[in-house]
Design a protein around this nucleic acid. Structure first.
Length: 449
RNA sequence: GUGAUUGUAGCUCAGUUGGUUAGAGCGCCAGAUUGUGGCUCUGGAGGUCGCGGGUUCGAGCCCCGUCUUUCACCCCA
């Protein structure tokens, strides 16, 4: 039998894991620095938790887990088993809904406002393509139980910190669901907000004419499409855009509220200074609209070395995150980094730093049992000093042992045979330069640190 | 879900209008070299041509199905 793995899943090599862990560590460190606490939730949730939370499209992409036990055993004899008897669990589709479930289940133990982060894989039965996998990691941070817009500010700072640490140029796009509602309202098409936003979200991709065609096809009136044009075509600085929106949304209470929120977030960020990447008001941004109620955030790569167009981070505010699970009045705001996409981009732009310290620094050549045991003692000292060191386990030909070090990109080898044991020294060879010298343990530690 | 696309050695790929025993480079193993790698030389192993069916005297090549790869749409991290 030929081994294989499911479509859209991947194995990760040791080299890839070192790089993946670098990304996770950068994000984890920033989250912790901002006071977020880590949780984990199970890979499987009950289907009742997941279904209906991601829209019609999302339900189709849910992985359902077949039940085990007597029902399955007797399945052969059952003509038309009910689906609920077949499956009652599904794989996690994102981290936000499980988090909402977690908050409701643990509400009496939590200290609100609760700031949590979570770095775990999620699964979607999507057709794989560029930057899209069936199993991928999300790195979420959410604040629940606080309405303050300073949470939005902090999360945007988190995004800036992460990408500045990764040295990746990005464009952070900001919108607000209330502004979108205001736009729909002044067009007299409040009930068509989804159609309108989904259409204008495609502006970058398909151009203004096709966006207008789609709007008309969705039943929006000619005059409404006409009045929408200055909004779609809006350009210039954030200040210019906000002024234009002020005029356009003067008659909409909800629109004005959205603008006020946007202004506050931007002005605080401006006062704090020290940004990374561009921060851009973009009313065509409409991702995840099903649940966002306030701020909407999306981050795209804007590095000249990259052709990557998918978003690498997204987020926003949900006024009633836990309402579906029976806990009302809990506002939440959060972001999610797509680690796999960030990996692809860093690979593309050759943006990974030198991570060789994560691997073995020195290999001890094995000259036989007694020498090897002596080496293990020396290796223990190095390890206690935080240096990654290993012994070649077999007394193979030296050629083979050095080739092993070479292939593993280990920078140094140590040769400790009977002579060195007698003198208490360690012959150390730098494989890059070929230079070899006899060192004491202290000198060796100095070299490797 | 829709429309394309890919699959030949561990890897990257050749393979003529269908024709004898399917090739190359790199990698791998052994030796030249029993305490010194990369370079070089010599020798060697390694393939159900994704899988199943069909057409044919004959299929890596043509047809059908299926799985897989990659890409776009939809949607999304």
């Amino acid at each position: 039998m030929k081994p294989s793995i499911p479509k859209g899943t991947r194995d990760f090599s040791p080299e890839e894991m070192i790089r993946r862990n670098y990304i996770f560590e950068v994000i984890r460190n920033v989250y912790q620095r901002y006071g977020f606490l880590e949780i984990e939730t199970p890979a499987m949730e009950n289907l009742s938790t997941l279904e209906g939370k991601y829209g019609e499209e999302g339900d189709k992409l849910l992985y359902r887990v077949l039940n085990s036990g007597p029902v399955m055993d007797s399945l052969r004899s059952v003509a038309d088993p009910k689906v609920s008897d077949l499956t009652e669990k599904g794989l996690r589709y994102d981290l936000t809904v499980p988090f909402a479930r977690y908050v409701v289940m643990h509400q009496h133990e939590l200290n609100f406002p609760f700031k949590r982060y979570q770095i775990q894989p999620v699964w979607r039965a999507d057709r794989p393509q560029k930057g899209r996998y069936r199993e991928f990691y999300q790195c979420d941070a959410d604040v629940i139980g606080s309405d303050s817009l300073l949470n939005e500010v902090e999360l945007i700072r988190v995004i800036q910190d992460v990408f500045s640490t990764l040295k990746l140029g990005v464009s952070i796009k900001l919108n607000n669901r209330k502004i979108l509602s205001g736009i729909a309202e002044i067009l007299g098409a409040s009930n068509q907000i989804i159609d309108i936003t989904v259409a204008i979200d495609k502006l970058d991709k398909i151009g203004i004419d096709k966006v207008n065609d789609e709007l008309l096809a969705k039943g929006l009136s000619e005059s409404a499409v006409h009045r929408l044009q200055p909004i779609i075509k809006m350009s210039g600085s954030n200040g210019t855009k906000l002024e234009l929106l002020d005029q356009l949304l003067a008659e909409s209470e909800i629109g004005r509220k959205g603008l006020q929120e946007m202004r506050l977030v931007l002005s605080v960020l401006e006062q704090l200074g020290g940004s990374w990447g561009s921060l851009e008001v973009d009313v065509t941004l409409a991702r995840g609209l099903n649940y966002y109620t306030g701020t909407i955030i999306e981050v795209k790569v804007s590095d000249s070395r990259s052709n990557f167009t998918s978003s690498v981070c997204g987020g926003g505010r949900y006024d009633d995150l836990t309402g579906i699970f029976g806990l009302t009045g809990m506002s939440g705001v959060g972001i999610s980094f797509g680690a796999d996409r960030i990996y692809d981009v860093l690979e593309e732009v050759k943006g990974f730093p030198d991570l060789s310290n994560a691997a073995t620094r020195i290999l001890f050549v094995n000259f036989g049992h007694d020498e090897a045991v002596h080496c293990l003692g020396l290796i223990t000292k190095l390890r206690n000093d935080g240096i990654n060191a290993e012994l070649y386990p077999d007394a193979a030909k030296m050629k083979k042992q050095i080739a092993y070090a070479d292939a593993k990109k280990i920078p140094y080898i140590a040769l400790v045979g009977t002579d060195e044991i007698k003198t208490g020294q360690i012959a150390v060879k730098d494989l890059a330069t070929g230079e070899q010298s006899k060192l004491t343990m202290d000198e060796l530690l100095h070299v490797l640190r």
